[in-house]
């Protein structure tokens, strides 16, 4: 359906320009809002996976074969292989306790197979460690400072009930959740797409949020998650967490690429609304 609407838009070359733009804008906003809302859910899920141990609902869902099929069409076969193998052998009632212990070992207790899921640990290290890999950095440092600055700039305040460091992978993913949620709201408000807006944060347009998302993904998340993923996959006993690491990495890459190309599209539409060459 979205495809159809797009086709209809782009085929309607001879309609009056402003009307076309308005209608296309409206449809784009609807689609974008839905998409943003879906991205909210994805980021919210991913954030939660790193912030707390799994529950039985999650296990039930992920072992469902239809779900696996859809996942593979989205993320590719490799990303789903681990989960498929997990599902094949897992029984939620038995698995849950050991998965919860696995969560603690990987993400909560430093004498376990702890992956220190903090950005500065992966980026703040400096000189070579084993086999030329960078050494580890401290729990907090300049990346935590930079992340916190962005949270403030975007008008995001961490809820009191949430007790993690600002550069924890779960918090950084939750920030993407926040940005996508604000983006979705912006569409609903029907604001313009002016990234240069000087208005209060509540009334920033979706393009401004896109910029923030791209910045945060490029300056933070995608700069370190691949290494965290390697660490999780090396330390995880359970295929479940290996799968989580893989789809997180995959999703971050896809989302970044998608945002970048959309920016191109938006910019292109602004310049020449009917120029199809600029549309991918």
């Amino acid at each position: 359906m979205p495809n159809q609407s797009t086709e209809r838009l782009f085929s309607d070359k001879h309609a009056p320009r402003s009307a076309v733009v308005k209608e296309r804008d409206g449809l784009t906003r609807v689609l974008s809002r839905q998409e943003a809302a879906a991205r909210v859910k994805m980021y919210r899920f991913l954030a939660a996976v790193y912030l707390r141990p799994p529950n039985e609902h999650l296990l039930e869902r992920v072992v469902d074969p239809d779900f696996l099929g859809e996942l593979s069409s989205l993320f590719g076969v490799r990303a789903v292989t681990e989960l498929s193998r997990f599902s094949a052998t897992a029984r939620p009632d038995q698995e849950l306790a050991s998965l919860r212990q696995e969560y603690m070992d990987l993400f909560a207790v430093p004498t376990g197979r702890y992956v220190t899921p903090f950005e500065d640990v992966y980026r703040g290290g400096g000189v070579g460690g084993e086999e030329g890999k960078p050494g580890k950095g401290p729990l907090m440092g300049k990346w935590a400072i930079a992340a916190r600055r962005m949270y403030r700039e975007a008008g995001a305040q961490k809820d009191e009930s949430c007790t993690e460091l600002p550069n924890h992978i779960g918090i950084e993913l939750a920030f993407m959740d926040f940005l996508c949620a604000r983006e979705a709201e912006a569409y609903s408000r029907g604001e313009g797409a002016d990234p240069q807006s000087q208005e209060r944060p509540e009334s920033l347009g979706p393009a401004a949020y896109h910029l923030l998302q791209i910045r945060f993904l490029q300056e933070h998340l995608t700069a370190w998650f691949p290494e965290l993923s390697v660490s999780i996959q090396a330390n995880a006993k359970s295929r479940f967490y290996r799968w989580i690491a893989q789809i997180t990495e995959e999703f971050l890459a896809l989302d970044t690429a998608g945002l970048l190309s959309r920016s191109v599209v938006l910019a292109g539409l602004e310049k020449n609304p009917l120029d199809q060459d600029k549309v991918e």
Binding site: Q34, E35, A37, A38, R39, K41, M42, R44, F45, A47, A48, V49, L51, R52, P54, N55, H57, L58, R61, F67, E70, L71, L74, Y151, R152, E153, A154, G155, A156, Q157, K158, D159, C162, G170, I171, A174, F175, D177, F178, R182, R200, P201, E202
Partner: peptide, 25 residues
């Protein structure tokens, strides 16, 4: 994507981490 994200989010693990700040950024 919408379906998958919906399924995952509905596993009721998540809650909001960031709220809008009261302080003007």
């Amino acid at each position: 994507f919408m379906r998958v994200s919906g399924v995952l989010a509905s596993t009721a693990m998540a809650s909001q981490v960031f709220n809008e700040s009261k302080v003007v950024a």
